[in-house]
Computed example of a mutant assay.
Amino acid sequence: MICFRLWNWFSTVDTDRSGAITAPELERALINGDWTPFDLDTVKLLMTLFDHDRSGTIGFNEFSGLWKYIKDWQNVFKHFDRDRSGSIDGNELRDALAQFGFNLSPSLLTLVQKKYANQTAAAPGHGFPGSAPTAPGISFDRFVRACVVVKQLSEAFTRLDSDRDGWIQINYDQFMQTVLTLP
C-alpha cells in the first residue's frame, strides 16, 4: 500500500511524465511541517545524494530511497525540536550535532546557526496562501542540509588530517579540490 502511494506521489510530481524527477519537480514535491517549500539548495543537495546514476534526475527507486531518508530525518528533527516550535534553535542544534559526534566550538556553532537560519522567518504567508510565517531558527529542510554539510566537511577534513592531530597542512589547490569534490 505504501509503495503504491509513493508511486502515485512520484507520478504526480513527475509533471513532464519523463519517468524521472528534476530538481524543480522535487522542490514542488517537498514541504516542511509548516507548509513552506523546501529550500532549493537543500533540494539540490538531496538530488546529489540520491542521483546514483548521475543523470541529473532521480527515478522511482532513487525517489524511494530519498523518501525514506526524509522520513528518518523527520524523526531526528522531532527528537531534537524539544520545544516543539517547528524549528531548531541554537541549543537544539548544538545537542543534535554533539549527538552525531560533531562538537563544534561556540563560534562555529553560531556560524552554522546563522548560515542555515530560516531566511523567511519574518515573511508572513511564505509558502501556501494563508500559511503562517516561518518560525525563527532552522527549519526542517535547512536542518537536514546543515547536518549533512557539517558531516561532509568533517569527513573531508579527516581525510586530509593524516596524522589525526586536528591540524592539516595543505595548499590552495588541495583545499579547493577537497571542497569542490564534495557532493
Rank of each mutant, 00 (worst) to 15 (best):
134 T>D: 09
157 F>A: 10
71 K>Q: 15
15 T>R: 07
58 I>M: 06
35 W>T: 13
39 D>L: 05
102 F>M: 12
129 P>Q: 12
43 V>N: 02
53 D>Y: 02
107 S>G: 00
72 D>W: 00
152 Q>L: 15
102 F>H: 14
23 A>R: 10
137 G>I: 08
117 A>S: 15
151 K>S: 10
141 D>C: 07
136 P>L: 04
122 A>Q: 10
61 N>L: 04
61 N>D: 08
68 K>G: 14
32 N>T: 11
49 L>T: 04
26 L>N: 01
65 G>A: 07
42 T>W: 02
18 S>C: 11
90 G>K: 15
152 Q>E: 14
111 L>D: 09
100 F>L: 15
96 A>I: 06
80 F>G: 01
28 R>G: 13
40 L>C: 03
116 Y>N: 06
123 A>G: 00
45 L>D: 10
93 L>I: 07
145 R>K: 13
119 Q>C: 04
56 G>T: 01
121 A>F: 07
96 A>L: 15
115 K>W: 01
63 F>A: 03
138 I>M: 06
10 F>H: 04
17 R>V: 08
34 D>Q: 11
23 A>D: 12
97 L>P: 01
63 F>R: 05
43 V>C: 02
26 L>W: 01
41 D>F: 07
122 A>C: 01
93 L>D: 09
57 T>R: 14
135 A>N: 12
106 P>G: 05
50 F>G: 05
40 L>E: 11
25 E>N: 09
104 L>G: 03
61 N>G: 02
104 L>P: 02
72 D>I: 00
87 S>R: 08
52 H>K: 15
117 A>M: 09
75 N>T: 07
146 A>P: 08
83 D>N: 15
155 E>G: 05
54 R>V: 06
19 G>I: 10
17 R>Y: 05
60 F>P: 11
137 G>V: 08
149 V>H: 04
111 L>A: 14
68 K>M: 13
69 Y>G: 04
105 S>R: 04
15 T>Q: 13
124 P>T: 12
108 L>C: 03
28 R>M: 10
145 R>F: 01
71 K>C: 14
38 F>A: 11
47 M>A: 10
106 P>A: 01
82 R>G: 13
139 S>W: 00
136 P>W: 02
135 A>H: 09
110 T>E: 14
73 W>I: 03
146 A>L: 09
120 T>K: 13
18 S>G: 08
135 A>C: 06
97 L>R: 05
149 V>Y: 00
102 F>I: 02
128 F>C: 11
151 K>F: 01
114 K>C: 04
78 K>T: 12
28 R>Y: 03
125 G>M: 05
18 S>N: 10
